[in-house]
Structure formats: structure tokens, C-alpha cells
Design a protein around this nucleic acid. Structure first.
Length: 208
DNA sequence: ATGACGATTTACT
DNA sequence: GTAAATCGTCATA
């Protein structure tokens, strides 16, 4: 399927967050394709956004990728044990990005299951537990700090594609998950969810 | 140098 | 529902 190009990513965070729903995230690992349809995203809207790592214009080694060109991956480590992946958008030096929060696995689910590790009792994980959260999807696709700054437009191992088939969408917007005190930005509807899809994160069920 | 905390997940009461 | 796990980053001194 055709890859998403630079132009696709060169927009605002809210527009990209909406546009990414239904697109396919592909990770090539050991020559195998691991892929999932994006079903949940969050927009981070620049220096004014008090929920963003770039709030107040913060710029450091950790969030440097947010300032790169559209189509760059921003992967960061958090809580001492999890990675989260963003797709950078906007212009160079403008720190705006979209957090990928959940995928519906479509290729390589067996490999994802291994990467996620055994669930309680050693049984196989339900497929809905493979990529239903920002940390989970990074673990399931083998995404870690080594992929920070990856150019999703040109990389052979991490990129985005159009879906093979049209995706049924029932899009809802809610407040973002897990923010500390983000002031007036805490409750802005900057999370996009395919509400009817069982692979969304458990953070906060969307109203249907 | 030190301490608080985080765009989370999991297990346990 | 509550708490533990676990460590890099950032603010404060």
C-alpha cells in the first residue's frame, strides 16, 4: 500500500490527529512486517499547550525530535519502563506532534504477542490487549529510543501507509489522558478515538 | 547533589 | 479502586 508522504504530515496537530485514524503504522522487524490500524490519537499543540513536553518552549535532548520536520518520529521513555511514540507535524522548529495511543493489530500479531510477553497465568494475550495503549503499542512493535528521530517518510523499518481496505470510523473526541496539571488545556478535546473499536486504550472510555 | 514526578501498565485488595 | 514498578529528566540548591 502507498506510504504516507511529507505533505500528509505537514499540517497542524489536531488535523493530523484526526487524519491518522484509520491509517496503518508499519514496523519492519527481523524482515517481518508488524502493522496495525491507528484507532486512537492525541494532539500536542506547541509551546502554549500546557500538556505538552514543549510547553513554554521547553527544548532539550529529550524532546528535540518535536522540533524536527514533519514526519519525524518522537519516541520517549517514561515511568522508568515504557516508550511512547509521536508523529511530528508542523514546520521545523515548531514543536507540535501527535501521540499514537492505540492500534488494531492487522499483521504480525503472533510476533506482537511475543514482544508483549506473557499475560497472567502464561496464557496468550487477547488481541485487544496487544496495542491498546501508548506504551503497549510501542512494546508490541519493538519501538524504543533507538527509533527516536526516525524519518517516517524514508525509513525502511518504521513508516505509515494507507489502509488496504476502507476503515469504518465512528470518531469521538475527549480530553487527553494522563496529563498532570495542564491548566486550561487539561480538558480540551484533543484526543481522537474510534469509539466503536475494541482496541482503544482503557484510560477513559469515550461516551457513546 | 538531591528530590519529585511522569503523554503508563499491571497486579492486587 | 489503589498501589507498585522503575529510571530519565528537570527543577531547585
Amino acid at each position: 500500500m502507498p506510504r504516507l508522504d511529507r505533505e500528509f504530515f505537514s499540517t497542524s496537530a489536531p488535523r493530523l490527529a484526526r487524519a491518522l485514524l484509520g491509517k496503518v503504522l508499519v514496523r519492519v522487524l527481523d524482515g517481518r512486517r508488524l502493522a496495525g490500524v491507528i484507532v486512537e490519537t492525541e494532539a500536542y499543540c506547541g509551546p502554549r499547550d500546557l500538556g505538552s513536553h514543549a510547553r513554554g518552549g521547553r527544548r532539550s535532548a529529550r524532546n528535540e525530535a518535536m522540533y524536527a520536520q514533519a514526519g519525524t518520529a518522537y519516541v520517549y521513555f517514561t515511568y522508568g519502563m515504557h516508550y511512547c511514540m509521536n508523529v511530528v507535524c508542523g514546520d521545523v522548529d515548531e514543536p507540535v506532534a501527535v501521540l499514537l495511543r492505540a492500534l488494531e493489530p492487522v499483521e504480525g500479531t503472533d510476533a506482537m504477542s511475543v514482544l508483549r510477553g506473557p499475560s497472567r497465568g502464561g496464557r496468550a494475550r487477547p488481541v485487544t490487549d496487544l496495542c491498546s495503549g501508548p506504551g503497549k503499542l510501542c512494546q508490541a512493535l519493538g519501538i524504543d529510543r533507538g527509533l527516536n528521530h526516525t524519518d517516517l517518510v524514508t525509513s525502511p523499518v518504521l513508516f505509515l501507509e494507507e489502509p488496504t481496505r476502507p476503515v469504518r470510523l465512528g470518531v469521538r473526541r475527549t480530553a487527553r489522558i494522563g496529563l498532570g496539571n495542564a491548566g486550561a488545556w487539561t480538558h480540551k478535546p484533543l484526543r481522537w478515538v474510534v469509539a466503536t473499536n475494541p482496541h482503544v486504550s482503557k484510560g477513559r472510555p469515550p461516551r457513546v
